[in-house]
Amino acid sequence: MNVILLLIPLSMVLLGAGVWAFFWAVNHAQFDDLDTPALMPLADDAQEPEEPAP
């Protein structure tokens, strides 16, 4: 059981780090728009105008 005396404080530290990272991300506008980024991977990168279909 003594291992929990090490693991639980460790989980607390990780939790603190996680919360800090999340606060940082929120403060740097990472969560201001939750809708648009979801579409980004779906868009083609093509910069040239569309070619007519054969």
Binding site: D33, D35, T36, A38, L39, M40, A43
Partner: peptide, 10 residues
Amino acid sequence: CAACGWLIER
């Protein structure tokens, strides 16, 4: 919708 945001950005 979100596609509007995408369109404006591009």
